[in-house]
């Protein structure tokens, strides 16, 4: 049995709008999973069902033997940390330190332990030099990192990142990748919603695709990014290198630069026999 399972999950908001329909998925301990799909596909509602902010209208969410229906959101928050899409929905303390400290303080740890957690999380996301500043004096991208630190400091088994890549620059993207790797190494399950397909290629194996309230694909990134029917249904694009490989009519479902380099060399070696094929493309 997987560490975290969602079974036949449906959620209708109180106004009657159904945001998620009959979704089943599972997550192993220590794996990182990317959830992709258009705005409005049901991704955020699904992860809010995992951390207990929402309770299923139908179906069950089981985390490490707990059914979320039987526990309060506060109890579930000890197992699942959720970083909001918009950091301003999450931040409410007057300094970065207090914001990161809030969660672990509620967990009944000693002051020393709390401090250690705060400093470790701040270091990991790169906000150590802003600890005494007001989070709202920081730019959006750093506020987002503060909210990630606040959730990391809770030391939960599952960490959900809702669009951590939105509006982030290149150095921050590298840091985000390193954070996810670090959390996996500590045995955390990391679930990430993102629109950035290059980020998915670089940092995930397991990818779930949602479209129109449902899960439409679930598997390895290579299978997903070469499943044109799924991509079309979910209005997603192949990563740039895969798209180039597709245009050049290479096989082997390329994802990375190293892989396409091999394809190019191979094609050149066999160049003359295959020449006409490429002229058609041009």
């Amino acid at each position: 049995m997987a560490f975290l399972t969602l079974t036949n999950l449906t959620y209708a908001y109180p106004n009657g709008f159904t945001a998620v329909e009959n979704v089943t998925m599972s997550f192993e301990k220590g794996e990182s999973v990317a959830i992709v799909g258009q705005n409005g596909a049901g991704k955020t509602t699904t992860v809010k069902l995992i951390n207990g902010l929402l309770k299923p209208t139908e179906g069950d969410v089981m985390i490490d033997g707990w059914n979320t229906k039987d526990y309060t959101t506060a109890q579930i928050s000890r197992k699942v940390g959720y970083v909001f899409q918009n950091p301003d929905d999450q931040i409410f303390n007057s300094t970065v330190y207090k914001e990161i400290e809030f969660g672990p303080k509620q967990q009944g740890l000693s002051l020393d332990e709390v401090k250690e957690r705060v400093l470790h999380a701040a270091e990991l996301v790169g906000v150590t030099k802003f600890l005494e500043e007001n989070p709202y004096d920081l730019p959006y991208s750093l506020r987002k990192m503060v909210t990630i630190a606040a959730v990391i400091a809770m030391n939960t088994d599952v960490i959900i990142l809702d669009e951590p890549t939105a509006g982030q620059d290149y150095p921050t993207m590298i840091r985000l990748g390193a954070i996810i790797k670090h959390l996996n190494e500590q045995g955390k399950t990391v679930i990430t919603i993102t629109h950035d397909m290059e980020f998915v290629v670089n940092h995930f194996e397991h990818v779930i695709v949602m479209a129109n309230k449902r899960k439409i694909a679930d598997g390895n990134k290579r299978d997903i990014f070469w499943d044109h029917e799924t991509l079309e249904k979910s209005m997603l694009k192949q990563p740039h290198i895969s798209r180039l490989s597709h245009s050049l009519k290479f096989g082997n479902n390329v994802l990375t630069i190293d892989e396409i380099v091999d394809e190019l060399k191979e094609a050149k070696k066999n160049g003359h026999a295959e020449k006409e094929r490429y002229e058609v493309v041009v």
């Binding site: 180039l244 245009s247 050049l248 190019l264 050149k268 160049g271 020449k275 490429y278 002229e279 041009v282």
Partner: peptide
């Protein structure tokens, strides 16, 4: 860009 890449690498493969 993608179209430049297609052009450059198609020529490269054809030697």
């Amino acid at each position: 860009t993608e179209s430049e890449a297609i052009g450059v690498f198609t020529k490269w493969m054809a030697g």
